[in-house]
Design a protein around this nucleic acid. Structure first.
Lengths: 215, 215
DNA sequence: CGACTATCTGACGTTGTGTCAGTTTCTCTG
DNA sequence: CAGAGAAACTGACACAACGTCAGATAGTCG
């Protein structure tokens, strides 16, 4: 373990230090969900946390650095997503349940962490390796597991040989992430929240098994 | 038509004004594709355009305002996407071709405009109605057309009744957008660019028709 | 040319950044 | 429990960017 929370100048932080650091992260998180990323300022975060900007800089090099920290924190928790796909059976009725659970879990995870996730997405899209790595870390569990499932079906001849399990899995996961990020957007296509889930599950099921689900 | 390019204080811009305004937009675009959105500064854009910041503020209220302009500009051009889906036949072999063309066109459009598009995506995800509207405008053509195609198949009994055409179409389009935004990302799942396209087309085909394609 | 308008910009007050030296607060030992 | 030493915090500062406005400059037309 790397463990050990450190200040910017390399010192190891003690109890009190950890606490303010954490508080700063919380306020940053709050800030991110209430104002556009571009407008999040060190000075505001510090003010909200009841400290001075100088204190902020003791723990983080800049806003981006703190965001990365927040992201890393969430990525750890995001290991939850593994449970949504681990050891699932993608044949017959269980497959439909698997698809439904995956969609449900994914959407709710995203809804809970939308503010950070959209910043991570931006950073990754901009080509920042650090954000990119974190995005990977979060999605990897799901993607790899789906890839394996598809590969398995493929070996059994239930999925065409020319299909690339990784490409399909990756695309499905990207779809889930994108839909989750723009959940509200769907309402103005006249799509209700409740309606969205089964249709996503359908697409996941189709993608993985190549067949319509048997409910 | 609203037409008429105006300065921030409401005056109508003349020939020279239009030119510098356009130059500023071009430089902004350049800037967006070379540095993170958060770091794009008015002063840099102005410098690059060989003018002063004050001039920038004559034409745009702030960076965001200029980005919106850029986005609107691109959205007009993005009507191209309509051609990818208009009047396509989603049955049999033509369906596969339709899916392939849609994917190809979508990815290349995204690649060409990735810088703005990711900012639009961020703005929309943050709940900014203006960005949201533009994102809509770009995706609407494709989504609506796909929705209609699915509805048609549904009326003919080729797609299950419980399927929501709008939800499926929206999700597929979101998938295309997300994959396009993270095209590079796929390479590290070990997915090659060339491999990606047919697999995306497969997913689109499956989503629209509910069946495996007949190549 | 001269007057009129469109366009540009220097200069400025304000806000935010990032650093450092010095102060405050905590902790632990003698 | 004093007080030394370490940990944590912050005021103050130099610098960068913002956004405004009055005035300078450039273009146009009689």
């Amino acid at each position: 373990m790397t463990g050990q929370v450190r200040t910017v100048d390399g010192r190891v932080a003690g109890r009190r230090g950890q606490a303010t650091r954490q508080k700063l992260l919380e306020c940053l998180s709050e800030m991110l969900s209430t104002s556009p990323y571009r407008d999040v300022k060190v000075i505001d975060v510090a003010r909200m946390a009841g400290t001075s900007p100088a204190t902020f800089y003791q723990y983080f090099p800049d806003v981006e650095g703190a965001v990365l920290e927040l992201a890393e924190e969430m990525a750890k928790e995001g290991a939850t997503l593994t449970d949504l796909v681990a050891g699932r059976n993608w044949v017959g009725k269980p497959a439909w349940a698997a698809a439904e659970d995956l969609v449900e879990g994914f959407l709710s995870f995203w809804r809970k962490n939308d503010a950070i996730l959209r910043v991570i997405d931006l950073g990754a899209a901009e080509g920042d390796k650090r954000f990119y790595r974190i995005r990977m870390k979060i999605l990897n569990a799901v993607t790899n597991s789906l890839t394996d499932s598809i590969k398995e079906l493929q070996d059994k001849g239930r999925v065409d040989k020319w299909v690339s399990p990784a490409a399909v899995a990756g695309s499905l996961v990207a779809m889930l992430a994108a839909v989750a990020a723009h959940q509200k957007g769907f309402q103005s296509w006249g799509v209700k929240q409740a309606e969205l889930k089964p249709n996503l599950a359908l697409l996941v099921h189709l993608g993985v098994t190549g067949k319509k689900p048997t409910k």
